[in-house]
Every structure is written in C-alpha cells, then in structure tokens.
C-alpha cells in the first residue's frame, strides 16, 4: 500500500521512456478507413479514435508531454521560488514581508488565467502552458522554503557557523539548503501532481500541447465528441491522468510521513 504511489510514478516514467524507443503505431498517423476500431482489432491494443489514430500509442506518447511539463514547471518554480524564500527567511524584516505580500498577490492569480493571458499574447503553445504552470507554483515554493529556512536559522549550528565568521551565502549553501531540501522534495512531488492536472486542463482547453503531439488533455477533448457512441475512448486518457496524479500525491504523502515523525503518529 505504501508503495502504490511510487509504483504508479514509475509506470508513468517507464511509459514516457519506452515511447522514446518504441510505440506500436505512429500516434499521429490518421487513417480515416480504420476509425473507431474496438480494442484488440488489427493490433490496436485499445482500438482507434475518430481519426483512426492508435489510442494505445497516443496514451504512451502522451506520458512524455505530461512528464516534460511537470519537470519544466517544477524546475521553473524551484529556481525562482527557492532562492526568494531562502533569502527572505534569512534576511527577515521588510524583505521577508515584501516576499510574503508579493506571493499573496501571486496566489490570487490562477495558473489558468496566466496561461490565457500568455496565449492571447503569444498564441497558445506548450511553452506558454509550462511557463504559466511554473510561475504560478513559485509562491508556494517561496513560502515553503521561507518557513523551512526560518526553522533552520533558529538552530544553534547556524549561530555557531556565523560566530565562526561564515557569511550569509556560505550559511545558505552549507547549512540552510541541505536542511530545507527534504521539505522541498515533498513540495516538488505535490507541485508535480498539480502541474499534471494543470497541463491536462490547459491541453483540454486547447491552450497547451498542440496537435499533432499527443497529450492526455487533448485526447479527452477530442474523444468527448464520441461520448455517446464510443465512451471507452474517454476512459483511457482519464485513467492515465487520474492514476498519474494519484501516484504523485501518494508518493508525496509517504515522503512527508518519512520526514515528519509527528505526522506518522496522527491517525
């Protein structure tokens, strides 16, 4: 039970990696003659969609877009958010207050609106989606690392390091970051789950990964048209999204429990 999350995450990563080497069909190949085939017909494991594209290959290759967006968004969020949070936590006073108020403001901007503004200016693409999801995760990373930094700064070894003459950047790199890292790992797992949902939503609305690159969100949008005749077409991308998010959430829970003994005791 504890391992479920890691197994699911592993499966998605494996699917993404496998799709780089092999997929049963070209997921973008349209074949009007072979549209809406049921599962297991003509070598199509999950059948074909309304344009005759192989559903299994689309789900497999779609894992790539999901993982890429998740990794990119978490990277953007941590590269911008962590230094901000650590600096605010170490400096205290008005810089800390400024960071907190700025993140307050940023939290009022939903990722979706940011993605819409970017898409209105640049045209919708995977990049605008990634930037929007990444930027909107910045405040959370900033806040979490600020809170963790405050805890570390209250420790005696930090006082000792300072008394020995280590300057602030040295303290940040040698003492704060290593101690903040585990909390950030948990946060990254949760942020990844959120990024997967956000990517799916953006692609569903046509604001994310563009055709012909397969993505689970767009598959949902395209296959929704066949809800009355071929409902199973919607199931596969929905399952893929749900299990991926569930996997990252469960993995995050387990990591959080490992890190925080107080949480383990709670019922």
């Amino acid at each position: 039970m504890r391992r479920t999350g890691f197994v699911l995450v592993g499966l998605v990563v494996a699917a993404g990696l496998l799709s780089l080497l092999w997929a049963p069909f070209d997921p973008a190949r349209v074949e009007p003659g072979g549209a809406l085939l049921p599962p297991l017909r003509d070598g199509h494991l999950l059948g074909t969609d309304g344009l005759g594209r192989d559903v299994f290959s689309q789900v497999l290759v779609g894992a790539r877009a999901t993982l890429a967006v998740g990794v990119a968004a978490v990277l953007i969020a941590s590269v911008l958010g962590v230094p901000l949070g650590v600096a605010a936590g170490m400096a205290g006073g008005w810089p800390s207050e400024l960071v907190m108020r700025t993140t307050d403001l940023m939290l009022a901007f939903p990722a979706l609106l940011l993605a819409l503004v970017l898409a209105a200016a640049f045209g919708a693409s995977a990049v605008t989606g990634i930037v929007a999801v990444g930027i909107s995760s910045v405040p959370v990373f900033a806040r979490v690392s600020r809170a963790a930094t405050l805890q570390v700064m209250a420790q005696e070894y930090v006082t000792a390091a300072r008394a020995c003459g280590r300057r602030a950047p040295g303290v940040a790199v040698r003492h704060v970051l290593p101690n903040v890292a585990p909390v950030l790992l948990v946060q990254a797992t949760v942020a990844f789950a959120i990024a997967v949902t956000a990517e799916a939503a953006l692609s569903y609305l046509g604001l994310g990964v563009q055709a012909p690159t397969p993505s689970w969100g767009r598959m949902l949008h395209e296959n929704q048209a066949y809800l009355f005749t071929n409902p199973e077409l919607v199931c596969w991308p929905a399952l893929a999204i749900g299990l991926t998010v569930l996997g990252f959430n469960l993995a995050g829970d387990v990591l959080a429990d490992r890190l925080d003994p107080a949480r383990r005791a709670r019922p």
Binding site: A193, T197, A200, A201, Y204, L220, Q224, L227, F228, P231, V234, A238, I241, G242, L243, V245, L246, N249, L250
Partner: peptide, 22 residues
C-alpha cells in the same frame, strides 16, 4: 479525498455527463 484530488474537475464532468446524460 484522494479521489477528489486525483480526478481533475473536467474529467469528473465528462464522467458525470456519461453517467447521467448518455
């Protein structure tokens, strides 16, 4: 709670419309 976090709201919408509308 876990299900609610794992199923994005538009997926829930599609599933509900399958059950109640289709």
């Amino acid at each position: 709670g876990q299900l609610g976090m794992a199923v994005p709201v538009f997926v829930a919408g599609i599933l509900l419309s399958y059950v109640f509308a289709v």
